[in-house]
Nucleic acid binder design. Structure first.
Length: 490
RNA sequence: GGUCUCGUGGCCGAGUGGCUAGGCAGUGGUCUGCAAAACCAUCUACAUCGGUUCGAAUCCGAUCGAGACCUCCA
């Protein structure tokens, strides 16, 4: 087995992956903020890491995959007039914050299930780790890198930067940050605009609130990931993932917090997925430029001409590399759908194939190796899919009799296709479309009934009886009455 | 304005200093009662201008264009 190489955002290079503990991998991925439905862009990120998780499992690693739920602590505006997003939504809708959280958490899980995601090992919530977060703040204050002001606590970025490198991940220089940070109103609490909040005092109208040594308040956003990753994966773990847009400031802040609190850089490999764009612009809740996963199943969107299956959407997303921008369009999705159907059709054919010779016209071993090489090269799913299409062609050739396959190779093909298509890419044979098949079956039967009626009207009883008898053999009974013909499926 | 990334054929999207990505669409053929599918063959490329090199779409520089981040954001 060849080595796995992963692109590390920290070094901007592909690096050979070596876990800290042999055979074990700790992976943390920043999860969703549950104040609204996840959109397709969110899904893309989690799907990329679902694929990473699946591949690591396939390679035989014992993976602890932690993906959090952010259910508190996000600041809406600038920190000083910050109002927790979840709290705000609750005001608007006049319901309990945890009711909002619950609703969108359930939606998140339903969506991911639909797209055939594996559940993470642990899915911790921010609100469930307030105590841990307070402990971290205490420690950072103790170590002299945070200060309190009017019930809020801020991380002292300039002091941190004297001995550490704030900007190590995002490639930013502190001087640039100082010159380019926008001056917003009400930043007087902070010593410097670059400082970020560890704890925020809760204003009276703020309904998500917890007691702390600094008064009633709520934790800063960056803290939760440090608290939960440290708790479940330790002070140093293998992989931390998230969207490109979290690189700065979120992940940068995580590094700073962990450096001060745990005295070590928290993560060996930082992985960042690129954005999914719609009309050339990043999908984002805030701009309204987004498409919801459910839109595919209803087809009810100005961006879609028809409905699409979850498997097809998954295939579309995995056809692009996770570090590339992927632009969504109905046209691109239609093209993917044809390719996806072609792939799935050939897998159905594969099930019916039998060895046709003692020799094979295809180098199955080297093809299999190519599949692994693709995944080992920073999870290059587009290359893997290209390899899968080469086997699609071969399967069709064998079916047509223009190529031959022997018993051993056929077994390898079946096994390898199952591994890569279902186990690693996580594609599914759209069982969810059972309803669609049911509908089609009913329509087909209606057609047969109509043809039989026509035959009977023409006194072609040979044909009409044949239809009835053959259907009966399949287990479908036709029942004639003066109201017409109905059917019953045994 | 600052930092960074990217610019591939009709569309989507990989990759590489010299050798076919792949999918969709197109064209010709095989097959077929017709159609579809499948198979075979095939046409469209590497933003622009310079430089390095025996050779660059791939390295370097400039220009133009696009996007991300700098503020919550996957």
């Amino acid at each position: 087995m060849k080595d796995l190489y992963i692109y590390n955002s920290l070094s901007s290079k592909k690096e050979k992956f070596i876990p800290i503990e042999k055979d074990h991998v700790g992976m943390y991925v920043c999860g969703p903020t549950v104040y609204s439905n996840v959109h397709l862009g969110n899904v893309r990120t989690f799907m990329s890491f679902d694929m990473v998780y699946r591949y690591l499992l396939h390679l035989g690693y014992k993976v602890r995959y932690v993906r959090n739920i952010t259910d508190a602590g996000h600041l809406e505006n600038d920190a000083d007039e910050g109002e927790d997003r979840i709290a705000k939504k609750a005001h608007i809708e006049k319901i309990e914050p945890m009711e909002v959280v619950q609703r969108y958490t359930v939606d998140f899980h339903n969506t991911l299930n639909r797209f055939n995601f594996l559940p993470p090992s642990i899915e911790p919530t921010a609100t469930g780790h307030i105590i841990e977060q307070i402990e971290i703040i205490k420690k950072i204050i103790e170590n002299g890198y945070a200060y309190e002001f009017k019930g809020s606590v801020y991380f002292d970025v300039l002091k941190y930067n004297q001995k550490n490198n704030y900007g190590i991940l995002s490639g930013r220089k502190i001087e640039d940050l100082i010159h380019n940070t926008r001056l917003l109103d009400g930043q007087s609490d902070k010593k410097n605009p670059q400082d970020f909040a560890l704890w925020k005092r809760a204003e009276p109208q703020h309904i998500m609130r917890w007691p702390s040594p600094w008064g009633i308040g709520f934790p800063g956003w960056h803290l939760e990931c440090t608290a939960m990753s440290t708790k479940y994966l330790g002070k140093k773990f293998d992989i931390h993932g998230g969207g490109m847009d979290l690189k700065f400031p979120h992940h940068e802040c995580e590094i700073a917090q962990a450096e001060i609190c745990n005295d070590s850089s928290p993560v060996n490999t930082w992985m960042h997925t690129n954005m999914l764009t719609l009309n050339g612009q990043k999908m984002a809740k805030s701009t309204g430029n987004f498409i919801l996963p459910n839109d595919f199943f209803t087809g009810n969107s100005k961006h879609l001409s028809k409905t699409f299956s979850a498997g097809c959407v998954r295939f579309f997303i995995l056809q692009a590399h996770y570090r590339s921008v992927l632009d969504f369009s109905n046209e691109a999705l239609l093209a993917s759908e044809k390719g996806y159907n072609k792939l799935m059709e050939s897998i159905r054919i594969l099930d019916t194939l039998s060895p046709s010779s003692n020799t094979s016209d295809f180098n199955v071993e080297s093809w299999k190796e190519n599949c692994y090489n693709a995944m080992n090269d920073d999870f290059n799913s587009p290359i893997l899919i290209a390899e899968l299409f080469s086997i699609v062609k071969f399967i069709n050739q064998v079916k047509d009799g223009s190529s031959t396959v022997n018993k051993k190779d056929l077994k390898i093909i079946i096994n390898t296709v199952n591994i890569f298509v279902f186990e690693i890419l996580g594609l599914q044979n759209d069982n969810e479309d059972a309803n669609k098949y049911k509908e089609k079956l009913e329509e087909t039967l209606e057609l047969l009934i109509k043809m039989r009626s026509e035959a009977r009207a023409n006194k072609d009883f040979e044909l009409s009886d044949k239809i009835r008898i053959e259907l009966d053999k399949i287990g479908i009974q036709l029942k004639d009455s003066n109201l017409g013909t109905t059917f019953k499926i045994d």
